[in-house]
Design a protein around this nucleic acid. Structure first.
Length: 595
RNA sequence: GGCCCAGUGGCUCAGUUGGUUAGAGCGCCGCCCUGUCACGGCGGAGGUCGUCGGUUCAAAUCCGUCCUGGGUCGCCA
């Protein structure tokens, strides 16, 4: 049985009713959170996206018909209730936002009945995510998810308002576009009209926003879906949202400045947190040397120390060979953890091996000054002392080392310090350490491809002072690229773009594209540059990650209404799915049968 | 593709060394209850222990396979 709401109009959301409304007649509409039937009196908690309010039914007030309907109420029924707001006499519920008042019902309409949901609709759900995602529309009724999505909406509005005030124009770019094989895998969309041809969904609006600069729009932004067909992670979905922006006639500093103002406003307006700007900046090479990461968490120390010089002649071949082969030996000092049990150390060794190192040599400096060292038999006392001194080791400290190629050592120790900081709780969870990482390498050598690939993308401007190295030593060229990092998470990144055709062509040539290949892929951009292109630069944030961190979640799915699971499928819609044979025929697509 | 974790009534979990009829809390159903808000009281229903196979007199428990979900490495210009 479901009744019409004809003649009724919602007057308030549940928690918009306060002491101020006492005596008012209100009409609320929402879901039954809980019915408590005491016999002659029935309490019903009604929920909408604002929260809960208690409604009280007594036959003397609402009459027999409505009272009998109230007796039938079950969780998640959708109801409309007309009643009088009353102050609670003695039974104030301090845990409730509306705990000082209640609504004495005069009329009840059951707009929709409901089956018992497969899991409880409540905050701090303990239900398995698999089930929550299958019934996402129920999961989304829970207050935590509603809070996250409301925050997300507010932040998006805040960003739009700020950028509009700063003179940015929101301009949409196509979803059906051209595949750009550099970088992540593209999601492809077959063309019916051009059989055998495919659109690609954008990995980012990069080229289009650069073209908009060529067209004179000077400050562009867009809150936009992007697509990457790569494996998922806790903070990675195949479709995700960027706050994308581009500016003409600006330098790195101006991009950074406007974005610091943006972040300051977003945090102030939505979380009431005052961020101190300007944020700290660190050069990429310093970030790697100090933190072993290009997205360092600076809330705690445990800095990497390069001990290569001290151990290069050691009898411990793990150390000496790593250096001989061009790698390095570095360590971190885990303060006060010398007595870490063997089992825990073994776990750390396993953790490190996951990154590809063979082991994790350690040296514990016991409180009595003695050493417990996994490579002690290869080290003289003097060598050990020198190593401890270099690591600034004190009694009680645990020193962990990695010896391998420089990149691998950074990766392992960078990850290890974050892992240790989390388990040892070395940082303040309420701290927000924003950080700009600058002067990224322009290129990195890809062993598999046997050539250099762009670290950011092929349109990133080299630093002026390194331009001459493009021909002779491309690996040494630094880029006018910058990332914004928060507590060890990359929130966004951007760069000054190449706007000179000769530099762009040189860049393509270093990347191994012939002029023809470059034109085949990006000809429209190179052509556009011929007709008057302003210097320009930009930045893009991962909105999902930003909201995840603002909402204190450790998973991006908690801030996305309808996320996908690890294998990129949707448990609710069961996408992706097979399609009708006719659809495939129309697209001239035949599937290769597997044996 | 690799490694790690998890899967037991609707939900969250317990289940000893392999041993008789697999338990609990919540939820659900019925009856009762005029101040509850983690309402309360009485009664009740509900399980092929993720799948398939193996070992055994006997498997939720041991072994293997596969499936599902999560984390992570590779990957993510």
């Amino acid at each position: 049985m479901s009744e019409s709401m004809q003649g009724l109009k919602r007057s308030n959301r549940c928690t918009e009713i306060t002491d101020q409304n006492v005596g008012n007649i209100v009409t609320i509409m929402g879901w039954v959170q809980k019915q408590r039937n005491k016999g002659g009196i029935i309490f019903v908690d009604v929920r909408d996206r604002s929260g809960l309010v208690q409604v009280i039914f007594e036959e003397s007030e609402c009459g027999k018909t409505h009272f009998e309907k109230a007796e039938k109420l079950r969780s998640e029924f959708v109801v409309a209730i007309v009643g009088v707001v009353e102050k609670r006499t003695g039974a104030v519920n301090t845990a409730m936002k509306t705990g000082t008042i209640e609504i004495r019902a005069k009329e009840l309409r059951i707009l929709s009945e409901a089956e018992t949901p497969p899991f409880p609709i409540e905050a701090d759900s303990k239900t398995k995510e698999e089930l929550r995602l299958k019934y996402r529309y129920l999961d989304l009724r829970r207050p935590d998810l509603q809070k996250n999505l409301i925050l997300r909406s507010k932040v998006a509005t805040c960003v739009r308002t700020f950028l509009a005030e700063e003179g940015f124009l929101e301009i949409e770019t196509p979803m059906l576009t051209k595949s750009t094989p550099e970088g992540a895998r593209d999601y492809l969309v077959p063309s019916r009209i051009h059989p055998g041809n495919f659109y690609a969904l954008p990995q980012s609006p990069q080229l289009f926003k650069q073209l908009l600069m060529c067209s004179g729009y000077d400050r562009y932004f867009q809150i936009v879906k992007c697509f990457r067909d790569e494996d998922l992670r806790a903070d990675r979905q195949p479709e995700f949202t960027q706050i994308d922006m581009e500016m003409s006639f600006v330098s790195v500093d101006e991009v950074i400045e406007v974005n610091e103002k943006l972040l300051k406003k977003v945090y102030k307006d939505n979380l009431d947190i005052d961020l101190a700007i300007p944020f700290e900046r660190i050069k990429w090479i310093d970030a790697m040397n100090t933190y072993g990461s290009d997205k360092p968490d600076t809330r705690f120390g445990m800095h990497l120390v390069d001990v290569s010089e001290v151990v290069s002649d050691s009898d411990f071949v793990v150390f000496s060979n790593a250096i001989k082969e061009g790698g390095s030996v570095q360590g971190i000092n885990v303060l006060g953890q010398a007595s870490m049990p063997r089992k825990k150390i073994d776990k750390l060794v396993e953790f490190a091996k996951g990154y590809g190192v063979k082991g994790l040599p350690y040296l514990a400096i016991l409180e009595n000054g003695e050493y417990k060292c996994s490579f002690g038999k290869f080290f003289s006392e003097e060598e050990t002392k020198a190593l401890v001194k270099k690591m600034n080791g004190k009694p009680g400290d645990l020193l962990l080392f990695a010896a391998d190629k420089r990149k691998l050592v950074w990766d392992v120790l960078g990850a290890l310090r974050c892992e240790l900081a989390e388990t040892l709780m070395l940082y303040d969870q309420n701290q927000n350490n924003f950080l700009w990482v600058t002067e990224f390498p322009l290129l990195e050598y890809n062993e598999e491809a046997g050539r250099y690939v762009a670290m950011h993308h092929p349109f990133t401007m080299p630093m002026d002072e390194d331009l001459h190295l493009l021909d002779t030593d491309p690996g040494k060229v630094r880029a006018k690229a910058y990332d914004i990092v928060l507590n060890g998470t990359e929130l966004g990144g951007g760069s000054v773009r190449i706007f000179q055709n000769d530099i762009q062509e040189k860049m393509f040539s270093v990347l191994g594209f012939s002029k023809e290949e470059a034109y085949e892929r990006f000809g429209f951009l190179l052509d556009a540059f011929k007709y008057g292109v302003p210097p320009h630069a930009g930045l893009a944030y991962g909105l999902d990650r930003m909201i995840m961190l603002m909402a204190n979640q450790d998973n991006i799915r908690e801030v996305i209404a309808f996320p996908k699971v690890k294998d990129a499928s949707c448990l609710m819609t069961e996408a992706p799915n097979v399609v009708d044979k006719k659809q495939l025929e129309e697209l001239m697509i035949s599937l290769v049968k597997e044996d």
